[in-house]
Amino acid sequence: MEELIKIQNIKKEYKMGKITVPALNGIDLEINKSDFVAIMGPSGSGKSTLMHILGCLDTATFGEYFLNNEKVSGMKKSKLAAIRNKQIGFVFQTFNLLPHLSVQKNVELPLMYAGLSKRNRIKRAREVLAEVALSDRVKHKPSELSGGQRQRVAIARAIVNSPAILLADEPTGNLDSSSGRDILTIFSELHLKGHTIIIVTHDSAVAERANKIVHIVDGLIKNGDFS
């Protein structure tokens, strides 16, 4: 299998006044292309911190991170922004859609930062909205959609730039069980299409769909379980 992510001895510390709080204490992890990984662990274990570092939203205090054999740790902020735009798609528990923008405009956002023309943006956004069965909701505002529909918009936005990795933080956490199942089905379908998916979750039902489960406790990987 082709290696997509490799992190070595990643440590993350937060400064709170004079006190240093360790969040990650030396994580080593390898994720291959087309893996479906579930990162699990109790609250405060460091799983969200790990996701932020993997998603280039945050940087490690120590250690090295390689993405597609390219060293990400130490990169300039503008390069990290390019990686977030082109290679990573985020799905959040609280959807994080811009409330004053339409569904279409929300999905277009990464394409706009990628520098695509308006015409191409509209075309591509409509394609992915069709993939998540929201073609009839393009002009709606997020507030006019159900929770499940909002999360589907967020997924459409995450995959619109065809990223290498799809990072999801408790994507079903704010949904009822039926909507949650629908969302997980979409993730499974995307996985089948070859997307690499990393989901941070508490939910064992989510983890069941993953082919690799990473348990984090106190900022360390307890075990890596491949199915």
């Binding site: 998603g55 939203l57 902020k77 503008s78 922004a81 390019a82 977030r84 735009n85 082109k86 985020f90 994080n96 859609l97 811009l98 956002l109 990464p110 930062y113 990628a114 936005r157 730039n161």
Partner: peptide, 12 residues
């Protein structure tokens, strides 16, 4: 935060 997450640079 959302804009930065989807690829906006600080300059943007």
């Amino acid at each position: 935060g959302i804009r930065i997450a989807v690829g906006a640079r600080r300059r943007d």
